[in-house]
């Protein structure tokens, strides 16, 4: 059993180099109007997309998204990027998502993933976790956590996609 297991895992690792860029999985999340949206249907007409996982109880997440919010218009003008913030708040705090984001005035596209179906399928075990998608909606870069200043690195990565 051990040998097969090892083989399977090895195979998976090797395949990483053989298979193409990681795409978004076929999983539905909900928007703030309660509508189910397949994450593969998100769209930014060929411009980059930032997919950010966050929660209302997560301090660095809110710090990151509030920091980016200050310059979001400039980012959009320069690169055409769209930021999609997926909340992993479960039924304990899910109802606070809309009041919170409306009060702080984020212009991001917001989705809810309360039982972490999407998060799990993308290997998100802690928040914040940021993915950058190219024009084909393939994941080209990801980052765990947030420390002040990381937004510059993210912007650099977005800029390199639109150059």
């Amino acid at each position: 059993m051990k040998r097969y297991l090892l083989f399977t895992i090895l195979f998976f690792f090797l395949s990483q180099y053989i298979f193409s860029q990681e795409k978004l999985p076929n999983i539905s999340v909900k928007n703030l109007n309660g509508k189910k949206v397949n994450i593969q249907d998100i769209n930014n007409e060929g411009s980059p997309i930032v997919l950010n996982f966050w929660a209302t109880w997560c301090k660095p997440c809110k710090l990151e998204l509030n920091t980016i919010a200050e310059d979001y218009e400039d980012w959009q003008d320069e690169t055409g990027v769209k930021i999609i913030a997926v909340s992993i708040d479960d039924s304990r705090s899910m109802s606070k998502v809309a009041p919170y984001i409306n009060s702080v005035g984020w212009d991001y596209e917001i989705y809810l993933d309360p039982n972490r179906d999407l998060a799990r399928s993308l290997g998100v075990s802690t928040v914040p976790h940021t993915f950058l998608l190219n024009e084909k909606k393939e994941i080209v870069w990801e980052h765990r956590g947030y420390i002040p200043g990381d937004e510059h690195k993210l912007l650099e990565k977005i800029e390199s996609l639109v150059k």
């Binding site: 097969y4 998976f12 298979f19 193409s20």
Partner: peptide, 24 residues
């Protein structure tokens, strides 16, 4: 475990276009 490998290999070798992905 054996089944997993079969599945994977089949899917890999039969794939016409390379639109599969691995993550974790």
């Amino acid at each position: 475990n054996f089944l997993y490998i079969i599945f994977l290999t089949t899917y890999y070798s039969f794939s016409q276009e390379n639109n599969s992905s691995i993550n974790g």
